[in-house]
Design a protein around this nucleic acid. Sequence first.
RNA 1: GGCCCGUUGGUCAAGCGGCUAAGACGCCACCCUUUCACGGUGGAAUCAUGGGUUCAACUCCCGUACGGGUCACCA
Length: 551
Amino acid sequence: MDHQALAALLFPHITKTIADYEAQYPPRALPEGAVVTRIAPSPTGFVHLGNLYNAIGERLARQTKGVFFLRIEDTDQKREVEGAVEALMDSMHYYGIQFDEGATVEGEHGAYGPYRQRQRKELYQTVAKSLVLRGLAYPCFCTEETLTAMRDAQMEEKANIGYYGKWTNCRTLSYEEIAKRIEAGEPWVLRFASSGDPEHMIPVQDGIRGELRVQENYTDFVLLKSDGIPTYHFAHVCDDHFMRTTHVLRDESWLATLPIHVQLFDTLGWERPLYCHTATLMKMDGESKRKLSKRKDPELALSYYRAEGYPPEAVQQYLLTVLNSNFEEWRLANPQANSREFTFSLEKMSSSGALFDLAKLDHIAKEYLSLQSAEFVYEQLLAWVREYAAAEEAARMEQQREFYLAALRIGRGGEKPRKDFGSWRQAYAFLSFFDRERFVREDACPENISPAHKREILSRYLETLDFADDAVQWFNKVKEITDAMGYAVQVKKYKKNPEDYPGSIVDVSNLIRVAMTGRQNSPDLWEISHVLGEEETRRRIAEYAEESGDV
RNA sequence: GGCCCGUUGGUCAAGCGGCUAAGACGCCACCCUUUCACGGUGGAAUCAUGGGUUCAACUCCCGUACGGGUCACCA
């Protein structure tokens, strides 16, 4: 076979050589140990947790004065969705991820571009041509049908599936045959001519998993698809070489094709990046675990957290606790610190798939929000309500700004702040009792208070209620009513002899609480009364005293 | 099915040959408290399994089981 002639036949327009590209994309001038890494999503319009997961590469880059960039892997035209880059950029921006270089909505910036793979066609073909020249790549004319038939035959005789060994129909085609078929317009793909031995194991360093031993690749995988665009494997190797990537963070599902990537790097004589294969986030499905699925699990989409109103910082912190086992410890030691100050280490990443734990996210989010100012909470909540709840309600919230701020200040800012909500959706629901329009009684009156007592307690409460009282005076009156009605003022006494009383001050307080807030769980009642105002407070108590159908 | 990865409490996990096997979430109890929370204290709960190696194994090796992933002109 005349490789020179074949290369000319296959790539008539390619005039550049690998050396030209080496010159165009020189090694980066960066400090020793600098990490160059990236996220490389395909523009399907679906931005998922994994994208944010891998964006922790940004930490690595920042910590080492390296580079973090965005590359768009748009080699699959069929799956491409309009506006996908915008959606991705929007999400990353929302989570505070910043790129030093790479694709942008308008175009791109950086010296190692283009950062959209389809625009790098000439580069891939140049590399492909060099492989043909070395006799390491050849055109294959097999149709989908022959490939399917081949797979069936392989299944039949229990052979390994793939294009290799005696199954490589096109590997031995003569130049004349190839020329004739190309002339006739037959579509072809370019395959790698592997001489790998599956018995041969190759050691590969993994930044998370330590030393891996992978089987040498023995299949003639596809380098260039029939449209001349590379497969992921080939594009990844070319790009990460010429973009001078040092660390490749990606999901562990790539472990299966790692042999291909290693083989490509090695035969091209390029230094391999440090692969870091992250564990897949799992979910419980009935009795068994499974990978989070795009179709079944809304929480895989990044948009889910935004729509639910989880603050981006909380989502980040959750991810960090899942990803880096020493983050939680650090957080405990530095409760107020920005999580960006945390030093991230690959070695501390887990290599087994974690179950997605919404309860933990909630906890982290509550913790985070409890430390934020009333102003911050108000602004963010307002923005969320406007976008995801109802615009009219947002307008009302805006008019009542001071009122909402006062409500949000209850139990906030002290040593032991309340942790009532972890998301804007939860906050919106939680604050509903402050809003006359949304106020409904969700909880019932405590069970051991009879309808007669209920009326009696509430009317006495109304009689003695004086907004000039301070908190102590106010509660003393509640105690007096409790006592007068025969209820236990001290919870301890009630617990000792519950049969001596119809109930305790807990029940009386909760009755008032339900009257005022509609729930048995709310912040401090006296503070709420003052935010609500005397008129509304009295109205609600009186209204509930009259209501009799709920016991 | 072949190949690959993984397996410490319900969940996330620390551990890296010698410990009563950290911690966090969740759960339970108690305490604090004027209620609701917050907070505090305590509790139940874990090394998948069988063989080695070793004076000694959660830690190292091999097998088994289980779970997951992957076998495309998708990434």
